[in-house]
Amino acid sequence: MKRSCCPNCCYPKATCVCKYVSPPISTHTKVVVLQHPSEASIAKNTVRLLALQLTNIEIFNGESSRDFEKAKQLITSRQSALLYPNEKAISIEQLTQQQQPIDTLIIIDGTWKKAHKILALNPWLTELPSVTFAELPSNQYRIRKAEQQNSLSSLEAATQFLHEYENIDPQPLFTLLNGMITEQTKYMPQHIKARYD
């Protein structure tokens, strides 16, 4: 039997996160998410939360260059940067000192393995400037095991960037993230829930 979902947040009504959503956050930077198809249906995926809170966000689902043709057209017509820790990435602190600001941030949403595959299938992404964090914030996304130490969820990465680059208040987004974690864990047996506390 299919579970009934909230028409606003699209989570099952039993784990609805609407009560944690703050007034919409407007940003100068457009957030463009390239989401691997396998991530879209995962209940603990945080891009869904970003879409509930940010007004200037666009999500493209796919893997190949053909899947992201519209995203490519949008990105290449703007001052864009890829949030990805490769060898040519500069820190956000360096970015804020540049005269030409970026107006579009690209985030790849998927495991490290899936992100690598998207990069391999979309070489145009490697031609974009890359940005990273000089120091990673602590990971608050405790209900999904990361493949690498100090990994951040897509929500945490976007929030940290917008906080450092535009000085937005990160708390509404983190409140929403923690609210989702609360809802996702509330029906777990206590001994399993204890792993995430």
Score class of each variant (00 low, 15 high):
Glu164Ala: 14
His191Met: 06
Gln160His: 13
Glu69Asn: 01
Met188Tyr: 11
Pro123Cys: 07
Pro37Tyr: 01
Thr104Cys: 15
His191Trp: 10
Lys145Thr: 08
Ala115Met: 05
Gln99Trp: 05
Glu183Ala: 06
Gln98Val: 10
Ala146His: 01
Gln149Ala: 04
Ile143Ala: 01
Val131Leu: 05
Ile106Asp: 06
Trp112Cys: 09
Asp103Lys: 05
Asp103Val: 09
Asn122Gln: 10
Lys44Ser: 15
His116Val: 07
Gln160Lys: 13
Val33Gly: 04
Glu63Met: 06
Leu105Trp: 07
Cys5Val: 07
Gln100Leu: 09
Ala71Trp: 01
Tyr141His: 09
Thr111Ile: 10
Ala115Val: 08
Thr126Tyr: 00
Ala51Asn: 14
Ala146Glu: 05
Ile181Pro: 05
Ser151Lys: 02
Leu49Gly: 06
Cys10Met: 15
Tyr141Thr: 02
Phe68Cys: 02
Met1Gly: 07
Thr76His: 12
Ile181Ser: 03
Gln148Cys: 01
Ile92Asn: 05
Ile143Pro: 01
Pro123Gly: 08
Ala158Gly: 10
Ser130Glu: 00
Val32Ala: 06
Arg142Met: 00
Glu63Val: 04
Asn139Pro: 05
Pro129Trp: 02
Ile59Gln: 04
Lys145Trp: 00
Cys16Thr: 10
Thr15Gln: 15
Lys193His: 12
Ile102Gly: 02
Thr55Trp: 06
Ile59Pro: 00
Leu105Met: 14
Thr55Ile: 06
Lys2Gly: 00
Thr29Tyr: 11
Lys88Gly: 08
Asn8Tyr: 11
Pro12Val: 14
Pro23Met: 10
Glu127Asp: 04
Leu152Ser: 06
Leu49Asn: 09
Asn167Val: 01
Ile106Val: 15
Glu39Asn: 08
Pro23Gln: 13
Gln171Val: 01
Leu176Val: 10
His28Val: 09
Asn139Arg: 13
Glu87Asp: 14
Pro24Glu: 12
Pro23Tyr: 13
Asn8Phe: 15
Gln140Lys: 03
Glu183Ile: 03
Gln98Pro: 06
Ala71Arg: 02
Lys13Phe: 14
Ala14Thr: 15
Gln35Ile: 02
Arg3His: 00
His36Ile: 02
Ala157Tyr: 09
Cys10Lys: 15
Gln97Cys: 14
Val32Thr: 11
Tyr196Gly: 13
Pro123His: 11
Glu127Ala: 06
Pro129Met: 02
Gln171Ser: 08
Glu156Val: 10
Ile92Leu: 15
Cys9Val: 12
Arg142Gly: 02
Ala89Leu: 13
Ser65Arg: 03
Leu74Gly: 02
Val21Asp: 11
Trp124Arg: 07
Leu176Gln: 07
Arg48Glu: 08
Glu164Met: 15
Ile75His: 02
Lys193Val: 04
Leu155Trp: 08
Ile59Val: 15
His163Phe: 13
Phe133Asn: 04
Asn139Cys: 08
Ile107Glu: 09
Glu183Leu: 09
Thr29Arg: 06
Arg142Ser: 03
Gln79His: 12
Phe68Trp: 01
Val131His: 01
Trp112Val: 07
Ile102His: 08
Pro189Trp: 04
Ser22Asn: 14
Lys2His: 02
Ile102Ala: 08
Ala115Tyr: 05
Gln190Phe: 04
Gln79Asn: 14
Asn122Met: 09
Lys44Gly: 12
Phe68Leu: 07
Gln97Asn: 11
